[in-house]
Structure formats: structure tokens, C-alpha cells
Design a protein around this nucleic acid. Structure first.
Lengths: 348, 348
DNA sequence: AGCGTTACAGCAAGCGCTTTCTATCTCTGA
DNA sequence: TCAGAGATAGAAAGCGCTTGCTGTAACGCT
């Protein structure tokens, strides 16, 4: 039924070994033979059997990309950049690899299961994007899993995620703390003294780091933090909307709202508008990430730009072994403060 | 080095066959034996060798999801919904499958190459999302490839894409034409007579269908179309921004701009604002898709909501054989007109 | 008690490919 | 002209798992 290597070999009048060699392109094969084989492949419409090949060669061309939420452009942009470097199709010559993105939905179990599935497939590399869960048990499980993957020859790269100690994983970490600090300092510089903060879900490194940066800025400027000023929620606009209403309820005198990311900030803007407040005259708003739509908000969002595409591309290259990992296996990627219309001087 | 089935068998004092059977859970195995095996698996930290398993069983647990642009939430939302039904991890019991999304970047070659790669892996199913290219040669190649996949036992489902004739593929098609028509009729109903249209890239089914709907509405209301009123561009905000400026240059008297999708509409809004025009007092704007951010635009975007998540979930279920395909293998999914602040009565 | 069943468990034959080792040929230099 | 090097091609041994078929007890029934 299905065409196999042997069929091609028969048709080209060579041994299966030879066919395998022209297909894999290592090992010398005479030009005339190669051509004959290629023609046979074409005529028979032969497609290599991936599993068989992976089994025999003990390696596969699968590269896994784990994301927390594939519907979120934050991850989409990174994943796209990674995948384009993975080669997949369209990449430059060399091993054609299947870069596949797996959506964990932010669930620790799914994350682990995907890793096991990739381990099963003997993936060539795995790239984990975005923040990590801070649950101790899960972190231990992850470390152990990542170590096993590395032992099995799978390259592991973290992109936009803190380093995983005791692991051979290369880490490209975003400086969320520094970005958060700079952002809040910008607001403080404008004269804000009462700032609400809409944090992401608890137990996430990204959430914690950004919040720490925010608090560091407050502290550095001698602003005592009011526990009422912080609300946690998911990383989406809905959560931002609700959190803002809650913030306003708790302290109507806030002059600025700092959001965990741009989507949340958008929700915050909507809530403020619906509450009859002007941005930035009454309340300033700031986001994080600088996703494409942020510049289109009205007013345009002040935020911290993260070089998602660049970082993803670099992670992809490292995963493919086409770029040297950073010294020590860890690199910090900084964000850039983008001051736009949504932040201004607070009302007197 | 690595633990194999045989190792587990030895440890559990059973034959490899038995281990395989408890792992695959078909075939009766005595409870006590099963438990012993499971314990051995656990103690040895055994991980099944995917390629070997796929080779022997002649099937794999890979399910491919092809998207045109993973950074675009339109695809991200669908992909997420599909993947969550695929099971992957977290799904309900049954075969744990690896739902992987592949980013074609809108390139025909990449699309084909990914399909070949999936064919190579003997994927269990493939879901293709979004519009198709209209290039004849490419369509023929796709049909042939899809047919081969189906022949090899891979289930093929199209989600948000027109049916592929002569192919066993199940199609869940979006009614882009109908949606486009309804949207433009809404605008016409408000009194607009000079409407600009920012279309997507040429040679795409989505682009063509939406545009046809638009034109059908114009025609139905006796509005002669001016060729200057249509501009093509990519499906992103940048393209929308530039196209709008171009449209304004060509005919400053336009009272409405209909965009190919929401991202494009956002760019259009920005261009209008930058040109000193108010929305909707001076110019109305309409989008398509109703992505999450569209409601946060100021004013909120009038658009056509496409049930991306629902359609994706359904496509996923069909791909997994957990839901009956629609009769005839084709179903049309309709959009819903969402009238919001960006459209209004034109200035006199 | 005797026989047909039923319930498990094991044997062994592959699945389709890669790769080491070996065999064959063709050159090259002396 | 001939040994030795170099370039190709083939034979065959797996890679780790699944599964059809073959036992072999233990069980139920008359």
C-alpha cells in the first residue's frame, strides 16, 4: 500500500542504504546515482516514514514550543519568531524541523504532560516561553523533567522566563523587575503619589517580578504603599476592567493605574471611561509589553516594550544550535519604556 | 542508558508484551499484574518511545493545526480552542494526543511543507484554519496532498476555510460573504453612500468573499462602486493605517471605511484621527471578526463577530472523531453583526 | 469427573529506517 | 604494472514497540 524506502530502492536499482543516504545527504553518493534515486522518489511520490526514521536514528526533528496562552499575542509573537528560526519549512537549508507550539493554558499539569509527550517523541529541542508557576512542588517536577530532557539530548531553552537552577536550560529572561520599576518611576516623576496596581495571577514569576519593580520604585521615592492599591487578576482585559472598578471603589482618589500587561491596561481604560474618568487628565494608565494594539488605544498606551520577536528569534536560534548560548547560559533582556498619551501629570 | 519496555518487563517479571498492553489499556490484564507493571514503570521512570510505538502501531498521536499567522489572535483563538479539544494534556481520558500548531506565515510553500512533515509523522489528524490561497497551482497541490493524507488515514478538517473539492476534508466554513454584506448594509442603512473598503491580500478566499459581500450590498442598494474606493493590503493595523490615508487621498468625501478585519480597522481609526477626522461623526469605521480588543477601541468597533472559539472547538472534536461531521461534510458558520460606536449617521 | 470456555500471559515476527562494517572499483604514484 | 588510497555501494544488524497467535491455567456446567 504505502511506498517504502525499499520500493524506491528497487525502482532506482540500488540498495535501501543508498536511498537513505541520498535522502539524508550525509555520506558520499555518486551524482548519477543520487539523481536516479531522486527521480524514483519523485515518481513513486515517496514520503519518508518519520517514526521509523526517528526510531532508527534515535533522534527526531520535532521542536516543541510551550506557551501559556496561544490566544494572547504576547505568546503568539514569541512563538512565531521562534518557529520561524526553527526552520520548520521555509527556514534555511539543513534539517527540516517541525516546530510545534503547545498551549499549556497556564496549567501546571498540562505543562508537564506536554513535556512528557515531547520527551516521548525524543524532541530535538524544547523552548518554554513566558512566566513560570511558583508552586514549589511543580517547580521541582519541572526541574527534574527538564534535566531528563537535557540528558536525553534535547536542548532546552527558556524565553522570557527566569532561569531554572540545576538545569542545563539556557535562559533568556525578561527584566520584568527593572521594567516595572522604570515604568512606575516615570509615573512618580510626573507627580503621581497614589498609584493602583493591577497584578497578574499570583504564583507567577512574571506577576511577582513586575510587582516587585513597582514596589521598589515606590519605596525608592518614599511612597508608603497602601495594601488597598493592589489587586490580582488574570492577564486579560476583563480582569483589568473588574480590577479597576474594584480599585476605584477602594480608593477613588487614585491618580494612576499600573496594569500587569497591555490587555489588562485596555480593560482598565474601559473601566475608567465607563466611570466617567478621563485618561490621563483624571487618571493615568500604564501597561506592559507594548503589544501591537497598544499604540492604537485612545490615548495611546504608555508601556514597557519587550522585544518579543527578537528574543524569540534568538531563543529559536539557540535551540537549533545556530547561535552560541549567552555566557553562563543566562541572558537578561531589557524592556524599553514607551511614554505615550495615557500617562500625564495628575490633577492638582 | 535509556529505560526500555524490556527493562520494565524484567523488573515487573512479565513479558514486554504485557507491559505494552497495560500501557495501552486495550486487552485484558489481571489487576495484580497491571499494578506490578505500573509500579515498575514508576520506579524506573520509564517514558514510552514515541517513534518506536508509532512505527509498530502504524499510527501516531500527533495532530497538526495549521495557521496563517500565529501572532494574530484570530488564529490564536481558534488554535487554542482546537487544541483544547484535541485533548493534548488536560483533555478528557483516552488517547493523549499531541496537538501542535504550525505557523505557515501565509506562505503556500510552508503550508505544503508542513503538511508533508505531518504526513511523515503519520499524523492522526490535521486541521487547517483560515482562508486559503487562490493560486490554482497551489490549490491543486493542496488537494492532492490532502487526499493523500486522508488516504493514509489522517482525518482532515478545515476550520474557517472554504471546502476543498475532491477531498475527503470536512469543512467548517465562515460565511464571510454574508457577514460582509450585512455589515455594509448596516452602513448603507445609516445613510452612507460613499464607502471605502480596505481589503486583505489578494488571492485569498477570505479577502475575496468579504469583498464580494460588500459589493453585493452596494449593488443591492443601487450604489455604483468607484474603483478608487478599494485598496488591498495585509491583514494588520499598519496596512490599515496606510490604506486609509490612501483612501482619503483618493476621495476625501468618503463617509465610511470598511476594513477587512479588526486589526486593519484599528489602523484605519488611527489614520482617521491623525487626519483630524472624528469617528463616527466624520467617518464611520467597521471591522470584521470581533477580536477581544475591538470592544476597547474608542469608539468601540462595529464589526461582525465570528464564533472563533466555538468553531475551533467543533473542528477539534470532529478531528478527534468525537463529533459527527456535518451532513455532506460541509457546514457554514455565520457571523453576527455587532453594532457599536464606530458607526453612525454620516454628516450631511 | 470431564469438557468446553474464558482469562491471561508469552512468543516471535515484524514496522521502515539508519548505520557500521565490508566489498568492489577506480585512480594515483612509483 | 601494481600496491595502496579513495570513493561508492551493499549486507545486515538492530532501534523499541505492537500484536496475532499460541499456550495454559482456572472456572463453570452437566
Amino acid at each position: 500500500m504505502t511506498v517504502t524506502l525499499a520500493d524506491v530502492a528497487a525502482r532506482a536499482q540500488v540498495s535501501p542504504a543508498t536511498v537513505s543516504r541520498v535522502l539524508n545527504g550525509n555520506y558520499p553518493v555518486a551524482a548519477s546515482t543520487r539523481e536516479r534515486v531522486l527521480r524514483a522518489v519523485d515518481e513513486l511520490d515517496y514520503v519518508l516514514n518519520g517514526p521509523a526514521s526517528s526510531l532508527a536514528a534515535a533522534t527526531s526533528d520535532l521542536v516543541g514550543i510551550l506557551v501559556n496562552d496561544i490566544a494572547d499575542p504576547f505568546f503568539g509573537i514569541m512563538a512565531g519568531a521562534i518557529q520561524s528560526e526553527i526552520g520548520g519549512p521555509g527556514g534555511r537549508a539543513g534539517g527540516e524541523r517541525l516546530g510545534v507550539v503547545c498551549n499549556t493554558g497556564g496549567s501546571p499539569e498540562r505543562e508537564l504532560t506536554y513535556l512528557t509527550l515531547l520527551q516521548r517523541q525524543r524532541a530535538a529541542a524544547v523552548v518554554l516561553t513566558g512566566g513560570a508557576m511558583e508552586d514549589a512542588a511543580h517547580q521541582a517536577a519541572m526541574s527534574s523533567k527538564l534535566r531528563k530532557l537535557a540528558d536525553a539530548g534535547t536542548r532546552v531553552v527558556l524565553c522570557g522566563r527566569p532561569p531554572a537552577p540545576e538545569t542545563a536550560a539556557i535562559a533568556l529572561t525578561f527584566d520584568n523587575r527593572g521594567g516595572g520599576k522604570e515604568l512606575t518611576e516615570h509615573l512618580i516623576g510626573l507627580g503621581h503619589r497614589r498609584l493602583g496596581y493591577i497584578a497578574g495571577p499570583e504564583e507567577r514569576t512574571t506577576t511577582r517580578h513586575r510587582l516587585e519593580g513597582h514596589r521598589a520604585a515606590l519605596e525608592a521615592h518614599g511612597i508608603a504603599e497602601d495594601p488597598r492599591w493592589t489587586v490580582h487578576g488574570r492577564y486579560d482585559r476583563r480582569a483589568g476592567y473588574e480590577a479597576t472598578l474594584e480599585l476605584l471603589r477602594r480608593d477613588p482618589s487614585l491618580t494612576a493605574v499600573v496594569a500587569a500587561n497591555d490587555s489588562v491596561a485596555l480593560g482598565a481604560c474601559a473601566a475608567l471611561r465607563d466611570s466617567g474618568l478621563r485618561i490621563p487628565e483624571d487618571v493615568s494608565v500604564a501597561g506592559f509589553d507594548d503589544l501591537p494594539f497598544s499604540i492604537d488605544a485612545v490615548p495611546a498606551l504608555t508601556t514597557v516594550r519587550l522585544p518579543l520577536a527578537e528574543a524569540g528569534a534568538r531563543a529559536g536560534r539557540i535551540a537549533m544550535g545556530r547561535e552560541e548560548p549567552p555566557p553562563g547560559g543566562i541572558a537578561t533582556v531589557r524592556g524599553e519604556l514607551m511614554v505615550r498619551g495615557s500617562s500625564g501629570v495628575p490633577r492638582a
